[in-house]
Nucleic acid binder design. Sequence first.
DNA 1: CGGTGTTGCGCC
DNA 2: AAAGGGCGCAACACCG
Length: 599
Amino acid sequence: MRLVIDFESYYDTEYSLGKMPTHQYIRDPRWKCLGCGLKIDDEPPFYLAGVGELEYFFGTLNWSLVTAVAHNAQFDGSVLWEHFGKRAPRTWIDTMLLARWAISQGHLSPDMTTSLWALAPLVGMQKGDTAAAVAAGGQQLADYGVDDVIIEDKLLRMLMGFKPPRDELMYMDQHVRMATEPVLDIDVPMLEEAAKSDPREEAFKKILRKDANFKVLLEKNGIVPEYKTTPTGRTKMALAKTDVFMQSLTKHPNIKVRRLAEMRLGSASNLVRTRAQRFLNVGAPLPVPLLYYAAGPGRSGGQDSSNMQNLPRKGPLRHAVKAPEGHKLIVGDSRQVEARTVGWRAGDKKLLTAFGTTDPYRTFAGHFMYGKAPEDVTADERFMGKAGMLGLGFAQSAYGFQEGIRAKDDKHVPIETCKLGHKAYREGFDQVPKWWKAVFQNAIRDGELTLPSGRKLIYPDLTSEVKPFTFMDAETDTWVTKDMRQYEYTRPKIFSGRGSQRKTVNFWKGLATENDTQATARDIVFWQLRHCADEGRSTGKWKMVWMTHDEGVFVAKEGEDTTLCAERLAYWLTQNPSWAHGLPLEGEVKIGQAYGDCK
DNA sequence: CGGTGTTGCGCC
DNA sequence: AAAGGGCGCAACACCG
């Protein structure tokens, strides 16, 4: 049975979904369900205004047979769960997520956005005025609600006409569940401690964050500030964590300067404090609101004011999110899945073989870079092997490689060593550079890439132009400018960030192969985690609650269920989809009470 | 003052 | 021969 469902709720200027996360809104004392538009299969739509009526109606349904349809099911699903007895359908279909998929696959225009208002004209409808309907209430609100349901029903038919694969529909469903059926507990005292703010300290940080103020402090200590040119051509003091100048300040002989730099860096991010407060505001159980297909290559992203995919690896936050009483978290990650995928996509046997050894990075450093047995490789050499295997798969230059290590690890590696690694990768894994070229040629020929799974990556409005290009010449170590054919494309609006404009970006083989690899790894990990989640659902023994790109988080009762879940997760992380034969995959599974324990 | 754009920083 | 990529949020800068 198909049920289209669209809740209407009270809101005002202070209290609205725009001002707070979904669950904070729904759990607020001001919450009021004004009614719900509904439609069953091909029957006429209707609107129920009373909560009692709704409870009665929902009670008559066999939810294990319901396919529920909503636009932004994160909202309607959360209302159903929080306010109508933890009800959930057998399957969720979210027309907003379907539209994201349709745009990503080129079925809908890259200019399209996914609001109901923007999509309604595609099915010959016009969305009503929400504010007016809510203000009027009564029959007018009912008519509005019914209209929305009609739009959603028509959208569903149109979008399903594009034949979304079953796997993608399951991934959408899983994303809705992680957001609407919250499970995770939070450590309130720990979060309260992390959310504490001292007004004097905050005021001081605010001062430090302003470049002009920090400049004065530097000059007082006899430091001449250094500047950089930003990507948009502005001049700015080089005070970011990864800037050479800032890195020199953190290593400055004068302790006062080092202190100053540390304080500035410490003032730059309030993530821990603000996120801790968010978690407290939302409360337990904590939902995991991830957006399906947030990124061009298909990865998910955070939404709803707190990105659950960027919690700091150090600090209290990961320790403050935990399994509920009597349960455990089971966390599994797919080891080096992207670097492995490069080897498989390129058909490079040597790269894949290296990943089959006990320490792939040591193997690369020993056999490919330094010409020695892996067991004789030093710590520094292994570091280079690791950086190379993870960083050189996408056509990066030796200089880019060097710069990446400097920015990320604050480490200076001589350019000769970087050139050695660069050469070792390209000559040792000689199928990889060929693959870069082939992928790029396909992309510029077709304006799209087809992945092994059958999913596509599209490059709309691809153009090229011959113009000067400046790069470091590896022979002479000098900047050289040459006329070259350069490509660019304009990303679909939904993958262009917060701005209203579609974003035009340079397109070259490094980007094409990085996209291809990230997307393929996404298809693999989504597939693995979905299978594990399905087993949990069908046995009732565990539940998938969270994911971070190459990692899935599950919750099970302590004891047998936890052990079994960990076993099955470990199993699935070694399994290949039918289209990925020959790619060696490895997983690592950890069990803990809090997320922070699972490392 | 609110909206938009830019930068920095957290993650993979 | 060649430029890391992908996100979201907070804070600041700038504009009308």
